[in-house]
């Protein structure tokens, strides 16, 4: 197995006086797709936010390319694409404006590429329509369009398929598959059954605290 890109060990998380999981271990290497499973409220979103460095109140260690994440933060962020529960889309702006603003820090991404990415998520007819006129699924697709322009080796996708129709899911699955064969690593949560070859899954139930730890 190649050196893991992202590796977590001994992660425990407590929210609102409730232990979500204890001693969680995970690792993703280039070419891996890891699906985090668990019922609502089991801490999937919190785990992804921890891995992305957004949520800091936890115990345990996260390593990026073998080094502690805190010391490699800038390097980590340059190589991460995170799409959260809330898609990061401003409803007053059009899909094109949203995507342009989000990717403005990346060199070499022009309007042409942005338009083709929005085309890839079937939003081309809507690129000049303010997002609050679009449906929830279409807004989600605006965020997902960033995936088609991403050269970041690590993707963390929270509820990647929520509100996406069947065709959209299929093309995303193709993208994920391509991504894996290109050596990208993906960590995601979804309640849809995932049809991607080589995907692994990790159930949070395995790391649920023993009953007596709760109180």
């Amino acid at each position: 197995m190649p050196v893991p890109l992202l590796q977590a060990s001994g992660l425990s998380c407590e929210r609102d006086d409730r232990l979500l999981f204890v001693d969680l271990e995970l690792a993703v290497a280039p070419g891996d797709l890891l699906q985090i499973e668990g019922p609502n409220g089991s801490g999937k979103t919190t785990l992804l936010r921890m891995l992305a460095g957004l949520h800091t109140g936890f115990e345990g260690e996260i390593r990026w390319c073998g080094e502690p994440l805190a010391r490699q933060r800038e390097h980590f962020l340059r190589n991460l694409l995170y799409i959260g529960h809330r898609p990061g889309i401003k409803p007053l702006l059009t899909p094109l404006e949203n995507l342009r603003a989000q990717l403005s820090g990346k060199p070499g991404v022009g309007d042409e590429q942005l338009e083709s990415a929005l085309d890839a998520v079937a939003l081309f007819p809507f690129i000049h329509v303010p997002c609050h006129h679009l449906s929830a699924g279409q807004q989600r697709r605006v965020a997902l369009a960033a995936l088609y322009l991403s050269d970041e080796p690590l993707w963390i996708l929270d509820e990647a398929f929520t509100a996406i129709d069947k065709d959209g899911v299929a093309s995303l699955e193709r993208l994920l598959h391509k991504r894996m064969s290109a050596g990208g690593a993906v960590i995601l949560t979804t309640h849809h059954p995932l049809h991607v070859d080589g995907a692994r899954s990790l159930s949070l139930a395995r790391f649920a605290p023993a009953a007596e730890d709760l109180f």
Binding site: L54, L77, Y82, G84, R86, P87, G88, I89, P91, G105
Partner: peptide, 12 residues
């Protein structure tokens, strides 16, 4: 509320 802030925090 829109999650834009999260993205801003994750910019390098």
């Amino acid at each position: 509320d829109e999650g834009v802030l999260e993205q801003m925090l994750l910019q390098p």
